[in-house]
Amino acid sequence: MDAQENNYLEEELSLKLFVVLTRALQSIKKRVEEDIKSYGLNPTEFGVLELIYNKGEQPIQRIGEKVLIASSSITYVVDKLEKKQYLKRKPCPKDRRITYAVLTEEGTELMSRIFPRHREAIREICVGLDSKEKDFMIHQLKKLGYAAQKHS
């Protein structure tokens, strides 16, 4: 096989990989979003609650980068979660420019009830792979992601 044929084959395989990855991600995301919606939340609200539940109070200004949502949307999401009484704002005593998002008792109770069910739902969604395959996929996808970042 000459270099041109090899290059063509690499392009074809790369395109196929992209399509398969995209379709797999769409299927997984759809199932995860259905699970989250069954708790009366949208994925962004759940992401914010899950972050604070697992990592503790967070500066509102930093939530966006950790949950991968636009900083302009953070205030709106925090307002909605505050109205639902799942979290509250807490001013930083040392720096008045910083406000923390903190789970309320209702928010902690909600997450204590739904997060274990959500973890189980994720396990069920990923049942198509065994532990070794999951570990391998994690490694391969990180490798792919890092290479894509480097070449951008």
Rank of each mutant, 00 (worst) to 15 (best):
E133Y: 02
N6D: 11
S73F: 15
Q61C: 10
K142S: 04
E10D: 10
D135K: 07
G64R: 03
Y86M: 02
I98E: 00
M1H: 03
R89P: 02
L25G: 09
F136A: 13
P116L: 04
K29N: 15
S71W: 14
T108A: 07
L129Q: 01
P116T: 05
S72K: 15
A121V: 02
I74L: 12
L15E: 12
S112R: 10
S27H: 05
Y39D: 00
A101H: 04
R96G: 07
E12T: 07
K37L: 07
P93M: 04
L25S: 07
D35A: 15
G64K: 05
S71M: 10
K30C: 04
V67R: 02
E109T: 07
R31T: 03
R23W: 07
K143F: 12
E12V: 15
N7A: 14
T108G: 02
Y86W: 08
L103V: 02
K83G: 09
Q26Y: 12
I122L: 13
E11H: 06
I138V: 05
K16Q: 09
L13M: 08
Y53F: 13
L68H: 15
E82C: 03
M111L: 03
K142F: 11
T99N: 04
T104Y: 05
L144Q: 07
M111H: 00
K88L: 14
V77P: 13
D79F: 06
I63L: 05
L49T: 04
R119E: 14
I125N: 01
K16G: 03
L21F: 12
H151D: 13
R62M: 15
A70L: 12
D79G: 05
R31A: 12
A101C: 02
A121R: 08
S38E: 04
L51H: 06
K80L: 08
F18L: 14
S14R: 12
K150R: 15
E82T: 15
I122E: 06
L129I: 08
L81K: 01
Q140K: 08
Y86F: 13
I52D: 05
L21E: 06
V32A: 08
Y146D: 11
E33I: 07
E5W: 01
E57S: 11
R117G: 12
Q140F: 03
A24E: 15
I69R: 01
I52N: 07
E50Q: 11
L103F: 01
L110N: 11
E65M: 10
S131C: 02
K37F: 12
I36G: 01
G56T: 02
K143V: 05
S72G: 11
I114V: 08
D35H: 08
L129W: 10
V67Q: 04
F115W: 14
I69D: 05
R31D: 13
E34T: 05
I114Q: 00
V102D: 09
N42G: 07
E65V: 08
Q26A: 13
S131K: 13
Q26N: 05
L21T: 04
L13Y: 07
V127F: 10
K88S: 13
